[in-house]
Nucleic acid binder design. Structure first.
Lengths: 340, 340
DNA sequence: TTGTACGCGTTATCAC
DNA sequence: GTGATAACGCGTACAA
């Protein structure tokens, strides 16, 4: 096992001082060509690489960014990570991923763990637990310490920081509008209990589209699921049995896929009898049968933008506190679950 | 903006020495009750937390583990990350995720980036680029430096380290056997060019099952896709048009879903005309229509085991080099794409 | 041209 | 009971 080599080792071996070695390796003009060549050759031979930790301690820069997300099975979050990783890597940063598992406590623990010097900044999306509890002190503490923070997708306006979202309201509006334009009049909304910022915004868009087109709101066809990750199939079944609907808008693709399946089991023809549109244009939407018309959230782009905003903040000298909120436009991807 | 507070600050503020503060905060017996209380109260008030980086430098332990995977859109890898994160977190470790993007070069860069002190050990799955190139020097260098490494799923026996895999051969065997038992005789295999270790093992299982049951191998119904991430639909189409098959085994679920769709478009009834089985029991398999019989790879479990093996190595004092290979048993999850 | 000294934040050892 | 010192690995201002 060949030990990791340090400046000190090289210095001793070549009988020069540590600082000479340090300078030589940075090609400093102060050092003679001879010694530089000697040292550089030696360093290369033994594959010297500076120790990141020491450099971090010195510079107070870790070149790490912390990403805290509620869950990693949601395809959307995966694409965001990808975007973050891509941009961050291109700027020489590593990505530390922590999962809050939708829990307030885990979110707090993860943040504290990373905030003690492990990272230069945070990119995060709030856990449902946090949004439900409506407690953002852990975020505030972090920003007060001067650690840059970018919130994406599930955000709060109770914390001052950079934010990246898609226009969820507009997305829902577009989708609902499309359904209305196709002559649908009984449009259901399948969502979560609405403490989630995104669910709320999506419901607003849905309601506004109805209102703008003179359609009444029917609370009976607004279905609220207990969990964001899995659809309650019994609920769906009784829903489709009892309600007369001709279109369904879902706040995520798992709900949409599950709803389509239950509907088909009950003899519904898609899209003729009932049209479906889901949020998040993920793999499931693409490969569903029929394929699902979806509102794309552009996760990868969101990740890239978040990373870019964060790194700019990290690397900017001036401490003027100005925060931006970037709003991305959602896109409707039309597939076979609606009529073209 | 309240700056991060250090031992030095506390020491100056309370007019004691740094070492006294350090000891007091660790509740050392050496320090008088009075000073301890004073210091602890002050530290708590200003929310003192030791700086991770400084501790890392001192202990030569970062409490970070590096995970390098080819891609994050494959559901399987996501579940592995989850397992790793779960176990690692419970032991106080953070997870740094890097994506090699199936590229040898990126894999090397990521490894080098992390190997210089940022992490205590690696968990990784080889990129296809690396397996194709068959060059594992970057792995060897890392292990020679004494950095523990656990390979999972896509492994190589050219590097000595801990490994975690499922028995891919057995999985393919089980699946093929099941199809044969159902009376299928023309069983296709949809795979990748077989430099990928897993594809190779799966092909072996498939071939062995055929041989054990006296069935001939028909090279014409072994279809090799150019990419692991996306199925070439034209290839699939001409394949189903030209070949007479009554069952299909796919090395991943994207191939399986795509194949099912194309087959259906061509008027095939599933599972009566053709049965389908796919590797990786992911969301797509579960939500497909018909739902896909799948070979579960137990990604989360694999992640947990990898993390456990790695952390044991990291924290073990003795340097005896003994490496284990953990082989998990695959499970066949029966759904509607095969006859029950 | 090279070397010394110091600091980043922490802990451990030893001296007072 | 408290404090000074060295060390982890590196970079740099300053001295020689």
């Amino acid at each position: 096992m060949k030990q990791k080599i340090t400046l000190k080792h090289i210095a001793k071996e070549l009988d020069v001082s540590i600082s000479t070695v340090s300078k030589a390796l940075k090609n400093s003009e102060e050092i003679s060509r001879d010694t530089k060549e000697k040292i550089q050759a030696f360093a290369k031979l033994y594959n010297y690489k500076p120790n990141n930790i020491a450099i971090s301690l010195k510079n107070k820069r870790t070149k790490n960014i912390g990403v805290i997300i509620p869950d990693i099975v949601h395809h959307f979050f995966t694409t965001v990570i990808r975007g973050v990783e891509k941009f961050a890597n291109s700027k020489g940063y590593n990505v530390i991923v922590c999962l809050s598992d939708e829990s307030f406590d885990k979110e707090v623990i993860n943040m504290e763990m990373l905030a003690n010097g492990s990272i230069d900044g945070f990119i995060m999306s709030l856990s449902s637990g946090t949004q439900e509890k409506n407690d953002y002190n852990h975020l505030k503490e972090v920003t007060e310490q001067g650690i840059p923070l970018v919130l994406f997708d599930r955000i709060t306006n109770q914390v001052e920081c950079d934010k990246v979202v898609i226009d969820d309201k507009m997305g829902a509006y577009l989708a609902t509008k499309k359904l209305i334009d196709q002559g649908r009049r009984h449009i259901a909304l399948i969502t979560t209990k609405n403490y989630l910022s995104v669910s709320k915004a999506r419901a607003e868009g849905y309601l506004k589209a109805l209102a703008d087109n003179g359609l009444p709101v029917n609370e009976d066809i607004i279905l609220k699921m207990p969990s964001m990750n899995i659809a309650d199939e019994d609920l769906l079944k009784s829903f489709f049995q009892e309600s007369k609907v001709d279109a369904v808008l879902c706040v995520n693709e798992i709900f949409a896929i599950s709803a389509m399946r239950i509907a088909k089991q009950l003899g519904v023809t898609i899209p003729e009898d009932v049209c479906f549109i889901g949020f998040t244009d993920g793999l499931l939407s693409k490969y569903a049968n029929p394929s699902l018309t979806a509102i794309a959230q552009h996760g990868e782009r969101m990740g890239e933008i978040s990373a870019q905003m964060l790194i700019e903040k990290i690397e900017s000298e001036n401490e003027e506190e100005s925060y931006k909120t970037e709003i991305l436009e959602p896109t409707l991807i039309e597939r076979d679950s609606t009529i073209n």
